[in-house]
Design a protein around this nucleic acid. Sequence first.
DNA 1: AACTACTCCTGGAGGC
DNA 2: TGCCTCCAGGAGTAGT
Length: 286
Amino acid sequence: MPELPEVEAARRGIAEQLLGRVLVGYELTRPALLVSAPGLTLDALVGSRLECVERHGKYLFLTFEPAVLVIHLKLAGQLVARGSGIPGFAAGHPVPAYDAPLPHKSTHLRFDFGGDAHLFLTDIRHFARVWLLPHDDLPAFRESLHLGPDVLDPAFTVETLRQGLARRTVGRLKPTLLDQSLVAGLGNIYVDESLWQAKLHPERTAASLTDAEIERLYEGIHTTMELALPTGGARILNSKAQTEVGKFPFVHGREGLPCPRCGTAIIKTRVNNRGTYLCPHCQPAP
DNA sequence: AACTACTCCTGGAGGC
DNA sequence: TGCCTCCAGGAGTAGT
């Protein structure tokens, strides 16, 4: 569920509030969360400064002098920072609630950044992963992820998208856009929103798209990101509870409600075994 | 090559 | 209230 906007919210929170601070301790309560390179433990990071925080797609890279931490929140991970010396932030899956007491029973990792500043990784479904790698291992690790350009990277252009789609002539749009090697950062929710923006049915094939439709798809992806980024994804993750009909998100979780563009009832279907929402009028089936 | 099905896991929603 | 079933979904893998 945490997709690019949610992970980007975490990156910004960490960059603004924890960058430059020294890690003074940690508590790992679910060891299976962490995959460490041989001979390396989190102890290696204690006493060193958080030097850099980057994001590529849904992966976060936290650079310390001795080693690098890589975090993927998968379906239900959340990162929450709290402490009297920082404003705090919350990003990712909204369960437990962002203001719930921490640690929660599903808090698997806590980092201590001095004073009482803490970063909590909580994951009710135990899918999230953290990797601890020596710097030298990072290039090979990143290569193994097979990530395409990040959605927000200027290297991701209409031309990039066109070329990526050209290599997948048979595949349907939805699974193609979910493939992180084409473009990194989109997940089930934002693919639905992007395709609605672009007025394209998720089961259209890449090969069937005209140049104009590819441009619409590219614009649709970016429009969706521009709507989601300022909310840190919180709005879409809580869409059923918090968002009015006709406001973003437009289709996700809105089965039976009117399409904000044409009024036709949004339908829910399954594509690639994923729950998929679309407007049958705006997004005609192939 | 590209699809489907399955796996990891558990909270929350809905039915009765 | 409580038990049951179903559903949610990122990404890897096995099978077709």
